[in-house]
C-alpha cells in the first residue's frame, strides 16, 4: 500500500582491505503504526517495513527487526568490515509482502 518507496544508501566508493566503513541507509516509507484513526474513527491498519538486512557478498553485516515505533522513513547508520571488493545488498521487507532492494559495489583502493 505504501507509495513512492525509494531506498537511499550511502556507501564509500572504495576502501582498504579490512577497513571499517560507515553505511547510512534511508527508505521513504510512511510506516503506518496501526494506532492512528481516520476521519470516521476507523483504525488505519498497520503497514510498516518489518525487517531490514545488509549483506556483503552473501555474508550478513547487519539486520534489524522493526516494530511500529520506528519513525517514518526508517533511517539506519551502522558499520561494516570490507574484506574484499564486492557488492553490498540491502533488503527491506514490507508488511504487504513487497521487497525493496538496493545494491552498491565497493572497490579495494
Amino acid at each position: 500500500m505504501a507509495e513512492n518507496v525509494t531506498p537511499r544508501v550511502r556507501v564509500p566508493r572504495s576502501a582498504a582491505v579490512g577497513e571499517v566503513i560507515t553505511i547510512k541507509t534511508l527508505i521513504s516509507h510512511i510506516m503506518e503504526s496501526g494506532q492512528r484513526r481516520d476521519g470516521d474513527g476507523n483504525t488505519i491498519p498497520r503497514s510498516i517495513i518489518n525487517t531490514f538486512s545488509c549483506d556483503f557478498n552473501g555474508q550478513n553485516v547487519f539486520s534489524v527487526d522493526l516494530k511500529a515505533a520506528v519513525s517514518a522513513n526508517p533511517y539506519f547508520e551502522f558499520s561494516a568490515t570490507v574484506p574484499e571488493a564486492g557488492e553490498f545488498t540491502f533488503t527491506w521487507n514490507d508488511d504487504d509482502g513487497s521487497v525493496y532492494t538496493d545494491v552498491k559495489a565497493i572497490e579495494i583502493a
Partner: peptide, 28 residues
C-alpha cells in the same frame, strides 16, 4: 519504549561482517 502502546521498537542484529557494534536510528 516503556511508555508506548506497544513496548517493542526494534532489534539490531550484528552479523559476522559488522565493523563494530554501533547503530543509529530514529524512533517514535
Amino acid at each position: 519504549a516503556t511508555g508506548n502502546p506497544n513496548p517493542g521498537v526494534c532489534t539490531f542484529n550484528f552479523g559476522p561482517l559488522a565493523g563494530n557494534q554501533h547503530a543509529v536510528t530514529r524512533i517514535r
